[in-house]
Design a protein around this nucleic acid. Structure first.
Lengths: 112, 112
DNA sequence: TCACAATACTTTGCAACGCTACATATAAGC
DNA sequence: GCTTATATGTAGCGTTGCAAAGTATTGTGA
């Protein structure tokens, strides 16, 4: 999967996996990979800066905790994050519908 | 619609509207807008460089013509372009499916 | 006739963003 | 002791869509 495709869509994915319950960065990567059944295997250099960005934007907040001697930074959605996620879903739906319309909805090998 | 969302997806859209028959740049903009029912209103500064990129990549070829005293650069798909379009549709389908899976498929206002 | 809109193409420079690569540290398993 | 897994972080790069500005022609309306 070409990496640039994610541009602009990553934030929504991160917010979505944080929705049910808080997670730390490493677990976020696992959650996205698992939820996408392996399609998105995000590198740490993508996820950590993105989480920092979301925190600066006030959509998530973090709290350090130590589990098994290892430091973890747990992130959870703020109210603004919940709202942003809802909006992201709407935007994604509109976007996907529009792309589908232009591409002609024939993702299979060849359907003349 | 946030503009960066298109990143990585633009080429597919352009190839798709060029599939049925050749078009010139300005007509490509119209075709994308119309096919997306207004969702994508691409600026010229986006489309013309993208067409040049696709031509450099060998996916389309251009030919100058003059209609009503105005010069037009008509673009049409090459065989490589047709193949690339087919591949783009597959990739888009995989990508959209994966995003849908992570976002949880609830693009509506609120469905608890 | 003169101004303006529509058609048609081009280029410069920017900003955003995800990625690669690297660095650091602890715990567990062999 | 060494490797692997867990866990976080940063610097710098490359791609790419966009805003803004410019050029040129045709058609239209005052």
């Amino acid at each position: 999967m070409r990496p640039e495709l994610l541009k602009g869509h990553l934030d929504g994915l991160l917010l979505a996996v944080l929705e049910p319950h808080p997670l730390h960065g490493y677990a976020v990567i696992d959650a996205v990979r698992s939820a996408s059944t392996g399609a998105f295997d995000l590198p740490t250099g993508t996820v950590y800066p993105a989480l920092h960005r979301l925190e600066r934007a006030g959509l998530i907040v973090s709290e350090d905790e130590v589990v098994g001697g290892r430091r973890r930074r747990m992130y959870r959605l703020t109210a603004a994050g919940v709202a942003a996620l809802s909006q992201q879903r709407t935007i994604w739906h509109q976007f996907a519908t529009a792309v589908d319309a232009v591409l002609g909805r024939t993702p299979w090998p060849a359907t003349p």
